[in-house]
Design a protein around this nucleic acid. Sequence first.
DNA 1: AACAAAAGTAATATATGGCTAACAAAAGTA
DNA 2: TACTTTTGTTAGCCATATATTACTTTTGTT
Lengths: 169, 169
Amino acid sequence: MSDVWKKFEDNGLTHSSVHHLMAIDQLLKTNGYARGIDVAKHLDISRSSVSVTLHKLQSKGYIVEDENKFYHLTEEGRELTHDVLSTRRIVKKFFLEVLDLPENIAEEDACKVEHLLHLKTSARLFKFISFVNADETFNREFRKRFKSYKHTCSDDCDVCDDDCFYEKS
Amino acid sequence: MSDVWKKFEDNGLTHSSVHHLMAIDQLLKTNGYARGIDVAKHLDISRSSVSVTLHKLQSKGYIVEDENKFYHLTEEGRELTHDVLSTRRIVKKFFLEVLDLPENIAEEDACKVEHLLHLKTSARLFKFISFVNADETFNREFRKRFKSYKHTCSDDCDVCDDDCFYEKS
DNA sequence: AACAAAAGTAATATATGGCTAACAAAAGTA
DNA sequence: TACTTTTGTTAGCCATATATTACTTTTGTT
């Protein structure tokens, strides 16, 4: 009854919009400019879809289109892409380096989650990774121990079958 | 160009549908039955929305409606709710107990993510939490050390400002 | 049986997000 | 200049999700 579940939609921008924004960010960094067609190619969707979405992003203040149809991020847009990219990288790093998950799973799950988590969550996660990965005897030992603990059953065993989690929690 | 971002929509069921399913699961456990109206009250949305969504869930094979309009989970539905609930609990536990995040953030973020993560991710996370929380000297020491490490700067400092993460990663 | 309350559903509306096709404008080229 | 290519925009379509209002059906009571 607590309605926490309804907050899923609360994220200002959708997953898709965020990726339009990040496409611009990346294009600016790699090519120095970003037009509609560039975003369309980058995301592999039609020019028309991009046109519509980018105009929405502009009306919401995340980007501006100059007189030559080149797009630029506003301060707000820059902040948002920075936050989302940070979160993605941190989460992926955690999945890969701490949980030792395979690349494709780490990549997909991080991407799904990147725009949903609170900043505080990713900040704390970053701190946690830094600690776990610290180059000190104790932390090295921790990583070593988890690695062997992780292998106490096979990589594909499904630890969550048979309600084991419910019993333990 | 890798199109990982497009997988966001790939989850068979939406966040909202999954919550309809979980509402039925919970109502069955607490009341012993679940009708449309019960789901509507539980989720605090209109009967009509529920009606549409539940018929979709039925056509997808997650639930069945009996001759008296009572809903029941199919095996597939049971599996899905079990998986999602597991993931939510595991993720929340991680946020709360390992990252030491506040209750509301842990709750919200876990809820947003519960239906998106691979099962393998939550299974591995479960294993990780179990290891971290193990009642042994070494693990206790780990928790203690992270706790003080975490406080090397204030709880509200934004570790990800100023591109610090990009530099370090 | 008659009526009222409860529950379900259809029609309708809004929003997202994609597509194609048609067209417009700009830039490049013969 | 005239033709072609590139790019952008609009309109129309489709599908999904989610909600509301208004209507129908079912159920229960008198």
